[in-house]
Design a protein around this nucleic acid. Sequence first.
RNA 1: GGAGAGAUGGCAGAGUGGUCGAAUGCGGUGGUCUUGAAAACCAUUGACCUUCACGGGUCCGGGGGUUCGAAUCCCUCUCUCUCCGCCA
Length: 423
Amino acid sequence: MLELSYLREHKDEAIKRLSKRKLQAQTAVEDILRLDEQRRSNQAELDAVLAESNSLSKEIGQLFKEGKAQEANTLKDKTASLKEKSKELQQEQEQIRHALENLLVTLPNTPHELVKEGADAHDNEEIKVVGQKPGLAEGAKPHWELADQYGLIDFELGVKITGAGFPVYKGKGARLQRALINFFLEQNIEAGYEEYQPPHFVNEASGFGTGQLPDKEGQMYHMEKDNLYAIPTAEVPITNLFRDVIIDHEDLPIRCTAYTPCFRREAGSYGKDVRGLNRLHQFDKVEVVTVSKPEASYGILEEMVAHVGGLLEKLGLHYRILRLCGGDMGFTSAMTYDFEVWSAAQERWLEVSSVSNFETYQSNRLKLRYRGEDRKTQLCHTLNGSALALPRVLAALLENNQSAEGIRIPDVLIPYTGFEIIA
RNA sequence: GGAGAGAUGGCAGAGUGGUCGAAUGCGGUGGUCUUGAAAACCAUUGACCUUCACGGGUCCGGGGGUUCGAAUCCCUCUCUCUCCGCCA
């Protein structure tokens, strides 16, 4: 949620930035500011009425104490009209607040200055390309065929016991997946992130805190009986660790990492996009989350991007980094870098990580603040990224490293897998 | 699943209708003392809205009600804990 004070003080800038998303926000922003104005004047009026009513009550109490019941009762009559007035104003206040809130949650985050204006993925900027496309022999296979050939993943079994999009990993496939999780976690810990194991289900308040609710309700699996949501990413439980928290400035930045399965309903996808591991309802991901001071957040974003890039390099994967344009960024993000690895047999880029700075958009909802040196509280910035999402990394590893002898395991993973080749 | 208890400031814990935003202790911060530290002593120490400021207002789990006045009484929801049952 955008900060009201920001809209108030930088109205034109906000509208201009939102236009990078191809969003015409003028009307909404003006409506918000008008409601904000109304709200404040209404509250001033309400405060005055309550102040008078409070002082009358005190007087009445005093009079009763002194045994002047007669005078007290006269004053009592006076409070009746005040009471009515305050009730009226309070109702009005609530209405205005609701209207304001409803409008405010429709506005996405304001893109950072560096973010290019654009409608969709076509306008994303390629920032960096690392490595080269591996030269594969004739007849190279896509990962789902390799997975079948070497008995690594059984998609049919997953359909049988659950449904499409829930693969069963087995044998060296399962071990490779586990090795990747451990490798990523260890690398993240080494880079200063503290490991967490959060719950895989969250309550409504948490879904709201990170912005999945109310707008993306359909994306999450919901357990109606207990009103819990299966997490679509570790971002949700981890960021919510800091909901309603005031952090001392000396403890910032806070860096967390967590491995969790992720659950996404992903309604409406089809075709080659959902083939094999390309898009799943359940997948594994190691996430990194940082809470920082506002002035430090963009430096930290660069650090996180460098760290994620380092992971892909260690795995020897050919990848590129995109800075998303306004229209392709997530609702809550101010700047996002996507990482895509080259899938050699499919001959396409696959997104394996998305690293974002949310500035105060999440912390405003979360009420996540820090106490500065001056003892004042202000909103933190939150950032997160995948480090990394497993299935597509696995897909690229299988495809890019295939040869007549089998699938070669990258050196850095061998200590974790315990084998060098899948043959 | 059954029975009971409870939800108060960073924590512990008082407070059953009127100067209670809330005693007290611990913790935190500043100071006195000390070569330094500890101890002791003194002071200070919640969040939010609004105002240039003075000030005003809101908040004792959430929501509603009674009352001139609610942390305190009533209703309701949520959550937590204890015991029993079941169970990795």
